[in-house]
Computed example of a mutant assay.
Amino acid sequence: MLAREPGSGRDEAIRGLSVGVGETTRNGDRVARRTERALAVHRLLNSQSPNRPVPLSDKGRIALPDIQPPRADLVAALAMRRSGYAYEDRDLEFRALSAWLRFAVGVQRFVPAYGRPEHPLGMAPTAGGLPSLGVYVLVRRAEEVPSGLYRYEAVSHELVELSTVDPTGALELVYAQPEFATRPAVSLALTARLDVAFGQYPLRHYRTLHVDSGVAVQNLYLVGTALGLSCCAVAEFDDAGLAALLGTPDTEIPTMLFAAGHAEQR
């Protein structure tokens, strides 16, 4: 298992980039300009005005169990991979949730990079190995995880509790198809960190951030298929509404929702 101790997650990885990127005022101004230009395009595409979500603080942590990878043939998983809309009406098993996150969007290995002896690289790779991909878990029903909103910390393999409010009602307003809020056991929200990306790359990297999310989506499908989950990536949602629900800063934009639960047995 590659997990590290609590507190060694995304925030430390981002701080570790300071050696490679630099923390000068000039660089900070350049990142801010790039971010604002990308946000202007993002808002225009979504016909939305600037939003200021209320940030959510960490309320606690749930350690996910060490788990063996699912036994599956890659070609078989690819052949069986499809969007599923039929879910069993039961809790998502704790070990299945742990395995799904660990092997789809967890840490693959640690390497010397960005001035750090152990910089984490993900199972879902990102451009430059940057910690620019965010993963949030919105739980309707899952074993040992109360309903609520969580941020997945890949390095320590933990769920960071952000809210204990059942997200179903809010998701019904966020999903263009509200049935995705009430049928799956959980929804995953993927986000892109513009401030992290533009500290290293030019403005055109806005496009690459969405490619990074697409790589994570394929991982979620394949690992979910191997675990017997019914999965569906959903791109049609209210961006501002989801950002408000997640409590992300305006420099972190939602890129995809992903619904999952145990596949209905027929």
Rank of each mutant, 00 (worst) to 15 (best):
L194D: 05
L44E: 14
P55Y: 02
P117D: 15
T24H: 11
T251K: 00
A63N: 12
D238F: 01
P55T: 09
L209E: 02
P117S: 13
Q265E: 14
F258S: 05
L97M: 15
G199P: 07
L121G: 11
E93F: 02
R140A: 04
V139I: 13
A104S: 15
A192I: 07
D11S: 10
A233L: 03
A235L: 01
E118K: 14
D91H: 06
L245K: 12
A76C: 07
V139W: 03
I67W: 01
P70W: 03
A243C: 03
C232V: 14
P249H: 05
E172Q: 15
L209M: 15
I67G: 01
P117N: 13
R71E: 14
A63Y: 04
S132M: 08
N219H: 14
L149E: 03
G247Q: 08
I14E: 13
V139T: 11
Y150H: 08
V215Y: 07
P254L: 00
S57E: 14
S156C: 06
P167V: 03
C231V: 15
P184Q: 03
R204S: 13
D89I: 03
A244L: 04
T168R: 12
L222E: 00
L44H: 12
E153T: 10
V234A: 06
H42M: 00
L45F: 09
S163G: 06
Y206R: 10
P125F: 06
A259Y: 08
T191G: 01
T25M: 04
Q218Y: 05
G241L: 01
E179P: 01
L149C: 07
D91C: 07
A3V: 04
R4T: 13
D11E: 14
H119V: 03
T25C: 03
